[in-house]
Amino acid sequence: MLLYLFYILSAITVGCALLTIFSKNPVYSVLFVIATFFSIAGHFILLNAQFLAIVQVIVYAGAIMVLFLTVLMYLNLNKSVESSKPLLIKIAAMVSGGLLFLVLIASFKSGLSIAPTSVRGDAGLIKNLGNTLFTEYLFPFEATAVLFLSTMAGAITLTRKK
């Protein structure tokens, strides 16, 4: 039962992710990204990590993608804005994309060696997650918070009128 759910969810995730790339209309792309986020939230629920699932929905599907969609709505989508890019940019994009692919493959190869049984089943529940975050990973957690704060301050400084 769970295995079938996993296969169905995975098919939806991969399908929506592919449709995101192949859609001509950017609004459709955004909608498919939202669908992808929802199916990833489903994967979190299958892993018994309800908190992560709901945060995935609130933060990514509910906040970030709303902003994306808002920005897209300001653009005039009827005009074709796809201009031909110079050859140098194409090559640079190819090289960086290939490098990213390499990193992803490397991370997946090392990630696959973790046996599924070594992960605790209730690690994603909010109590355990909070305990882990605020004891074991306190420094990275706070460092990330400071990073976000500096990003926010940077964005405000950049957009502020003199």
């Binding site: 908190f51 609130i58 509910g62 909010i126």
Partner: peptide, 11 residues
Amino acid sequence: IGILYAFGVVS
């Protein structure tokens, strides 16, 4: 996580 679920749906 009931209350967060409500927030998720609202957002």
